[in-house]
Design a protein around this nucleic acid. Structure first.
Lengths: 118, 118
DNA sequence: CAGTATCCCGAAGGATACTG
DNA sequence: CAGTATCCTTCGGGATACTG
């Protein structure tokens, strides 16, 4: 099996312009336990590393750093380092990152309509 | 840490009606490597187990059965068994399942706009 | 045909300690 | 403050064999 992405799904027989390909591409770059919530939290505002960490509470240092790095490498978020002591790092959505907000919105709408506690 | 769902995210401090809660609920019930593609493939049409299996090619028997069972338990798909020999089982989207199609559509739109092969 | 039942493995993520 | 490094555990998913 030819893995062409980290989700291990073989797309070799699927045309890049097909719907299934786009779907799998999206699922691939947004995979991981925390990415959607991170992106939702970033929303329109820039946030510091420590703010994200505090908001997510249960995430470990290593995981947060890894998820942020993956999002950065995918061109979803921008990492801005301020050369200060102590260091200050801010994260914000790129234009591509803002493109995932509609996805998140539809997920929220669905979740709020169908979760069992409503 | 109190796990209240299989993704392990602790929602105990988040109100059920909040956006973050809805988002996590959705992420939770749609987690897994194949669920989005399965639901996209089902679309508006009923499909047989063997059709889904053939379409996904690389999926294992065990995984397909498991993903379908989870989707059924979440009320996303309907499983209809025809008492024949050999057996025939058809899967289709419930109303709730049709509610995830808008999510999939936005994911497709995003993926087709931003994947590197366009 | 549409599953079940096992076994197995890799990768994701957590915990902890350390650092510029 | 914002990481890095290391070790460890969990678990989703694959492979294989078997069945009503």
């Amino acid at each position: 099996m030819t893995k062409i992405c980290k989700d291990g799904i073989d797309r070799s027989l699927i045309k890049p312009e097909s719907e299934a390909y786009g779907l799998m591409y999206t699922q691939d770059i947004l995979s991981g336990k925390w990415k959607y919530i991170i992106l939702w939290y970033l929303g329109e505002e820039t946030k510091r590393y420590s703010e994200i960490k505090k908001f997510l509470m249960n995430i470990s240092q290593g995981s947060l750093t890894k998820q942020l790095k993956e999002l950065e490498e995918a061109g979803i978020i921008l990492r801005k380092v301020y050369p200060e002591v102590p260091p200050k790092v801010e994260y914000s959505l790129t234009n591509k990152g803002k493109g995932v907000l509609p996805i998140i919105k539809t997920m929220i709408d669905f979740g709020n309509e169908y979760n069992e506690y409503k």
